[in-house]
């Protein structure tokens, strides 16, 4: 039995979010629902990266005055995934905006939000 840490809980939550989001993107029919599932999916990936950076007994990577730099580098959590997560949040917002715009344009033409009607295959 492994010890339950915050990191493990983070991985579990990330797995749940990724599975639920992926399942929603693959199996739901409504386009807006697909987009909501996409936000859940990107949340899950963010959480996976943040949980990866965590270390037990670590500190927030902010160099406060009076802190020894050796102490800081040996205890601070990884700063690199934070950069990735910030980028991912921003890219997620822009992807959502583009997808919603396309859905609105297609709704005006077809009058429905069902992916099985709008995105049906057709012979050219």
């Amino acid at each position: 039995m492994t010890e339950v840490t915050i990191q493990l809980l983070g991985f579990i939550a990330a797995a749940i979010l990724i599975v639920v989001g992926m399942g929603g993107m693959l199996f739901l029919d409504n386009l807006i629902k697909k987009i909501i599932a996409f936000t859940l999916l990107s949340d899950g990936v963010n959480l996976l990266l943040v949980a990866l950076a965590y270390r037990e007994g670590g500190i927030v990577p902010i160099l406060l005055p009076g802190m020894s730099i050796y102490d800081f580098t040996s205890r601070a959590i990884l700063i690199f995934p934070a950069g990735i997560v910030l980028t991912n949040i921003v890219i997620g917002v822009s992807t959502t905006a583009i997808l919603v715009a396309l859905v609105i344009m297609l709704y005006r033409r077809y009058g429905t939000l069902k992916a099985s009607v709008i995105l049906k295959g057709e012979r050219r």
Binding site: L26, L119, K120, G121, E122
Partner: peptide, 16 residues
């Protein structure tokens, strides 16, 4: 090879 979304999703599910 139809451009139907569900066709592509089917292959994606198999991949996962």
């Amino acid at each position: 090879n139809m451009n139907d979304l569900n066709r592509v999703l089917y292959w994606m599910v198999i991949y996962f």
